[in-house]
Amino acid sequence: MLIDKKHIGMKVPPHSVTPTAWQLKWFAKATGETNPIYFDEAAAKKAGMPGVLVPPTFFFCMDMDKDEPFDYIATMGCDFGKMLHGEQIFTYHKPVYSGDTLDFDGQVTDIYDKKNGALQFIVKDVKVSRQGEAVCDLRTVIVIRA
């Protein structure tokens, strides 16, 4: 069944995240990061940073850091078992550090299908800001298989 396009424009409940040096240390370890500005607060401060530098893809983790990260997919009546992460795009405005409080404000901006509905695509755009200043934009494309 095709997803109702009335959901284009749906707001995702906003949330706030404060990344911690503790979690970023584990993220760095998992991804093989060796540059200490990404996991060692003392090294980051020595490099003139107020905290550990948040790496480029961690914005996605913070966007997912809420009780029901796929509530908007559920509202559309889609089966989570048929959901795939198709694309992820980041646009960067300002660097972000551990200890910053970030606000995530998202909405569904497109729904389309290919192959006569065998693949449906849901586009969610999220603006991330720190005290009102834009720091990053995320675009997440979720694919729903028939």
């Binding site: 480029p56 893809t57 795939l84 992460h85 198709g86 694309e87 992820q88 795009i89 980041f90 646009t91 960067y92 675009r139």
Partner: peptide
């Protein structure tokens, strides 16, 4: 220096 970064899985 990174302005945009996108991936297709």
């Amino acid at each position: 220096a990174i302005r945009t970064f996108g991936v297709r899985f």
